[in-house]
Design a protein around this nucleic acid. Structure first.
Lengths: 129, 129
DNA sequence: ATCAACCTTGACATTATGTCAGGGTCAAGG
DNA sequence: CCTTGACCCTGACATAATGTCAAGGTTGAT
């Protein structure tokens, strides 16, 4: 399967497919005589794995770890779970941080009349806080 | 005030102070005869504004807009409020996305024994989902 | 034979920040 | 007067993940 088709079936851009190969998430892809990359069903599965992991917010570095565990028949599920739970924790912290920003901002906005006058506690709040 | 002192009093790194100047968030800073930047209380206030806005998750581009409004005595508070609320919305969306990832991940992790066996619904889930 | 659609690599851009190198400046102490 | 350490200057390279563009080879269909 050519890279264009692989891109369409996995939803991963050609650019990123090549990139994942360059940084080692994907093994060096088989080439046809003309130099075109040729994707096997296994490669496609691996691409899907990467795409799904990205969708769960894993960084490429974390995905490298997950792929290592995926490839390793000797892994223990506790290793995988540790990675997953650490990431879930991270997601929770980041979400909480964003929510805190949002609350702080809404609090400032509450005092703002939002009309044609220039007085604005939002700007004042940002200036001093 | 030298840049080192400005950095200490605002918590903004020297690197970033120079960068904000280069990209136009800060006006060209006064220089001493030796070429050293010299910060006025107004500059410090502006740096604080930027730092606080960053702390609320505004991008530098959004901050440029906010600074424009801050500088503009003709602004209407509704303009400011619109920027703030749009950003709060954005924060909410991003937080929700992270939370959704977290929930999905925890759901996968729930089925994982987390012991010494290799079977792991987390990896399986990422592979297929 | 030609034309469109595909593939290749490589380069540059993005966002906000860190770090390092090579070199001037200043103040204090010998 | 000279040295030393603590500043300051600019410029370059790096990060993470992705987009886009350019210049060129390939393939398949008309």
């Amino acid at each position: 399967m050519n890279i264009g088709q692989a891109s369409k079936t996995t939803g991963v851009s050609e650019r990123m497919i090549r990139y994942y190969e360059r940084v080692g998430l994907m093994p060096p892809t088989d080439r046809r005589d003309n130099g075109y990359r040729d994707y096997s069903p296994q490669s496609i599965e691996r691409l899907r794995f990467i795409a799904n992991a990205r969708g769960l917010g894993f960084s490429l570095e974390e995905i490298a770890t997950l792929l290592g565990l995926w490839d390793n028949r000797e892994r223990t599920s506790s290793e995988v779970k540790a990675v997953a739970l650490a990431h879930a924790d991270d997601l929770g912290r980041k979400a909480a941080a964003l929510e805190a920003m949002r609350r702080a901002l809404l609090e400032l906005a509450e005092g703002c009349s939002g009309d044609s006058r220039p007085d604005c506690p939002i700007l004042d709040g940002i200036a001093v806080s």
